[in-house]
Nucleic acid binder design. Structure first.
Lengths: 216, 216
DNA sequence: TAGATTGTTAATCGATTAACAATC
DNA sequence: TAGATTGTTAATCGATTAACAATC
């Protein structure tokens, strides 16, 4: 809404800038130039300046960028100054791993509820949050201002559950199921297709040294 | 080695083609045109033809593509016809989740060893594989023809362990630690920075409907 | 053969990099 | 002021889409 249309390529790079700036800030570095940052991050200085300027002039000629200020600004752009309430659907191994990951909470992503259809684990606590039956999801969402659902269930169920979430007014879905969810355009889906990542890695393994190019 | 230089953008799309073709094959579909596949996958037919032609003429004018054959060919391109031996380093929640994920094994990614520095869990079995101390990693790698290491340890340790892996002759690293590993050019690193994904999702949540664009 | 659909070239679009005037 | 470094425009490079001749 506030900014002009920013390309997805730029957005994907913001969290990495955020990470490097956070580390610099923690090391007590006050200012940095696009040139120095480009060496650190192994990207071009031109790209850094171009990217940051999509959002306004955070730098100053002859000086560079104030690390702490730029860090805060990128945080705001990414929406990290706001709290996001999440629910986790699917309390299997992966779901539990994500629920236990404290760093999300530090960034304002708060897991409010955990749901699973397996009644044997209902009531079990994960970081003080009880695992609840799927049937309770709908009313829970109404009462808890949930923005994001994390889907860590098999693909066969994911499509159905995504439909339920949409009806309950979810805004974003972080999808770990290996299936493409078909949801309305105003709902943000971020797929985490780990097996596709591994296949990409596999492809690159078989290339010659010079061809290789991976990372992200 | 065999193919000319293929762009990373194309490679990233191959696993998704592979998935759709696998599903079509399982449904008994024998052939499909780029046009029909483009509708299914929500990409342009032109892109499909362009992508596939990087690797040779898999189709036939007036007919389309043979689903089963194309599936096999893409599998080969991705290196899925070969077995890959993996080790998992870090048997915390996420590591255990990945180790328990059977589908990797189905695609030829076999976890041979699991290592963790926490001695309390040494000897514990995950899918019949005992968790071993880090000290045994080096000799294990020598005796077991390991291609890929899955790094599910905190970022503070990941850099150090990556160095060890390089010295042991690892070919690829699937890195879940939130840090950029600094390894020689001939080693393939695929980063899985989940928190950066979540930030990207967060950014898109705050955009207006029309701006939004996410997915992969 | 006629129709369908590929393989491939050309056109367009978008993203990255280079260059430099503005300015702190 | 002189030097440094941004913000921004222009040039380049790469990726996507359109178009159509080749051909099954």
């Amino acid at each position: 809404m506030d900014e002009k249309n920013i390309s997805g390529a730029v957005i994907k790079r913001l969290p990495r800038y955020f990470r490097y700036l956070g580390e610099l800030r923690d090391e007590g570095v006050e200012r940095i130039s696009s040139g120095d940052l480009s060496v650190l991050m192994k990207v071009t200085a031109s790209q850094i300046r171009q990217d940051l300027n999509q959002f306004g002039g955070f730098g100053q000629q002859g000086y560079g960028y104030n690390v702490s200020h730029l860090y805060d600004e990128i945080g705001k752009i990414l929406g990290l100054h706001k709290k996001h309430n999440l629910i986790l659907i699917g309390a299997g191994n992966l779901g539990q791993a994500l629920a236990n990951y404290v760093n999300f909470e530090k960034r304002g992503f708060i897991i409010k509820g955990i749901f699973d259809k397996n009644e044997k684990i209902h009531g079990k606590l994960i970081r003080d949050i009880p695992i609840s039956p799927m049937e309770e999801m709908e009313s829970f969402m109404k009462n808890n201002d949930i923005d994001i659902a994390v889907l860590t269930i098999p693909k066969t169920e994911a499509v159905k559950v995504a439909g339920m979430l949409v009806r309950c007014g979810i805004k974003g879905i972080w999808n770990f199921a290996h299936v493409d969810l078909n949801v309305p355009d105003n709902i943000v889906v971020k797929n985490e297709h780990l097996s596709e990542s591994l296949m990409e890695l596999s492809y690159n393994l078989n290339r010659s040294v010079s061809d290789k190019k991976t990372g992200g």
